[in-house]
Design a binder for these strands. Structure first.
Lengths: 231, 231
DNA sequence: AGCAACGTTCAGCATTCTCACAGGTTCTGG
DNA sequence: CCAGAACCTGTGAGAATGCTGAACGTTGCT
């Protein structure tokens, strides 16, 4: 099976590397460049399945890059990255086709979820299903719905992301640092205690509906989503 | 089968030697350097499978090293080492890919376990399975779960590490000094009586579930995990 | 503006863990 | 068979870790 190719375009090396290593670890084949011209060249040669494109680039804007690509008949969907206070209005018009956009700062897991969502929509086969089901809990990625034994559960955005990350790694201990790095935005500067808080929130919502606790504390190591049956 | 190559980067010679000899004995091919510049050079030439990287280096931080490596397209996973008080502030963002981190002081066996965990997740080949099974006892390294004849047993972190070390060396006598060196943190300066205590704890938890004692005392020599069947 | 939902920190509480110690038990050499 | 060595294990103090409710600021919605 061919790996899915992603072209990452961001001028900040930190963000670029963060994205590259995160996406590579998630199984994508990644090519990363730092400006618009290189992006066009790389897209032409590399024929990526998706382009992760910062809107603010040193030489040309992400819009121009997209326009140029389209005129060259390169139709890979684009996931735009933009700072929170930058022009959200102008972006909305651009997310035609399969495109989408995200604001910085983001969490790496959220980026991957969006990428998968886009690829799913643009009829790429071989992309994982939009439903994650482990034991008694089921998540619908498209609708952002969570069900426990058929009963719907309302989760806040952060609760949802945390649960998804834990379920994607079911039956594997995840340290608080790993959870923080994957679920929270990359510029989060707080304490790990917040993970404990959110684990607590999730338990309060999930445990009344499950036959046995699904979120286990592995003292000294971290947390684990447990299910008897394998995924 | 090619040995797995590890690059060790730490400026304290004691720690560096401890790591190097411990990892060599565990079967890895080790290259050890003392600063960030040498690390970059060595990584470039040596093409290691994993990098053990102290965050505090004399010339540049572990972050910069990683950044430099990534920009050179050296994608070996990194296991960061950091003092316990440096942890809380700047550790976030480190474990995005397959990376992980550990706090100093550590135990050498714990380092090896983490290395294997990372290698298991990145390259799936040629790395031992995450399950250690000897006789009636089974350990799941990913979940940190312990089963005796199918029944789950709850162990504290130290109990778990001790049991793992004994099982990795099943049917071989281990002296208390060896156990102390492998299982306890390298700056532990207590008495060996602690080993006796933890052996006792383990027996109290394991013996009720086994058909015959698995932890044998070799008076005057040490302890041994015994199993009739070979692993 | 007012309100509700959310994210974040913090402090107090509870639990668990580590480790030392000490008295008891088993083993071994002479 | 005795004495000393080696080992076992209960007790408890203090530390580490984790849980949770409360408070507060921010954001978005009506």
């Amino acid at each position: 099976m061919e790996p899915i190719k992603i072209l990452v375009v961001d001028d900040e090396p930190n963000i670029r590397d963060l994205l590259a290593s995160g996406l590579r670890f998630a199984g994508f084949s990644v090519l990363a460049v730092g400006n618009g011209n290189d992006a066009v060249t790389a897209a032409e040669k590399g024929n990526p399945d998706l382009i992760l494109l910062d809107v603010m680039l040193p030489d040309m804007s992400g819009f121009s890059v997209t326009k140029k690509l389209r005129s060259m008949n390169i139709l890979a969907p684009v996931l735009f990255l933009t700072a929170r206070d930058e022009i959200e209005d102008k972006i909305t018009g651009l997310t035609v086709g399969g495109d989408d956009y995200m604001t910085k700062p983001f969490s790496i897991d959220e980026i991957i979820a969006r990428i998968n969502a886009i690829l799913r929509r643009t009829k790429q086969a071989s992309v994982e299903k939009s439903v994650i089901e482990v034991g008694e809990v089921r998540i619908d990625e498209d609708a952002h719905d969570v069900f426990v034994n058929g009963e719907s559960v309302e989760l806040s955005p952060t609760e949802y992301k945390l649960l998804r990350y834990l379920m994607e790694n079911a039956n594997r201990v995840l340290s608080k640092a790993q959870i923080l790095d994957h679920v929270w935005e990359y510029d989060f500067n707080g304490e790990m205690g917040i993970v404990e808080s959110y684990i607590s929130y999730l338990r309060k919502k999930l445990d009344p509906l499950t036959n046995e606790p699904v979120l286990l504390t592995k003292r000294g190591h971290g947390y684990m989503f447990k299910s008897l049956k394998k995924k």
